[in-house]
Nucleic acid binder design. Structure first.
Lengths: 154, 154
DNA sequence: ATAATATTGTTGTAAATGCAACATATTTTT
DNA sequence: AAAAATATGTTGCATTTACAACAATATTAT
């Protein structure tokens, strides 16, 4: 029996790219429609800082899936907007720039989350929460297995 | 019972980005190790042309998930390397640039696919074919459902 | 103690990407 | 028939992204 390589458009990689891309477009469309004044990346950073108070830049970079350079730039923007404060501290005896969400940042986050609730509600009429959770869980399991094949350098 | 928005790092969107990103890194790493002289995008285009002979640029763009501009650039590169030929033809009475894979392109594809076989074999020791197929299928089902929410403009 | 290595963040730059504008040609509308 | 809309591909530009080089400091090795 001859082995045949799958065509690109039939691979899991392709489906991942296509779905991730679609989700990105839906998010951007949604952010625009609801006139959310942050970019998706800024929102992701703000939300992540809010539940990791005092996180340093590199650790944030790992979480939001950006490199250190771009994470720094996103933080510059959030700081300019007064949503985040940065301060120098130490971590393992090393100087690092840590950060925390400000009062204004917290209000902004609450406000955006309120809008997102309605979006999530809307999508539940298309796909059930159970189905999303199931895909999420199986995807995560698979990803963690694949991660053993590579050393992430961020 | 209070509804609470999931944090960004716990969402399906996040898991999709993270997994897609990981797969991309694994692919690049693999292409480098095996000294494959095409980029992932060029390979994807070449493979897709090989099973859609005489496809036009716009239709290829849709399949490989690039916009028309970038698809044109990828094709320039593939044409320069002699792997693809482009010719003017008509589609619905309109002039379009169609393309086909060359002899050299086909040989290149066979060669790369042979290398990919070994990679696929390697990954099967990490994740079973069944599990990949299952994730692929559920992801595709979910994506198709979400697609009803947006009109793709490529 | 000195040198080599590692961690963290910034800056600069090249590549990738997306998007709008344009050119051309065809179809549809008025 | 004329005008408007649509389809296709290219060009140019602005944004994003990745990556390497650097600066500063701390740890580890020799």
């Amino acid at each position: 029996m001859k082995k045949i390589t799958k065509h690109y458009t039939d691979t899991l990689n392709y489906e991942l790219e296509k779905t991730a891309r679609l989700m990105r477009m839906l998010s951007i469309q949604f952010f625009e429609k609801l006139q959310i004044t942050l970019s998706i990346d800024e929102y992701a950073a703000l939300d992540t800082i809010s539940c990791h108070d005092g996180i340093c830049q590199r650790d944030l970079a790992k979480l939001i899936l950006k490199d250190r350079a771009n994470t720094g730039r996103i933080l510059n923007s959030l700081e300019d907007k007064g949503l985040v404060t940065r301060f120098v501290d130490t971590k393992n005896n090393r100087l690092v720039r840590k950060m925390a969400i400000t009062e204004a940042g917290y209000k902004m986050l609450i406000n955006i989350n309120k809008k997102i609730e309605s979006y999530v509600f809307e999508t539940k009429q298309i796909v059930t929460e159970q189905e999303i959770d199931a895909v999420y869980a199986s995807l995560k399991r698979l990803r963690e297995r694949f991660e053993s094949m590579i050393e992430l350098k961020i």
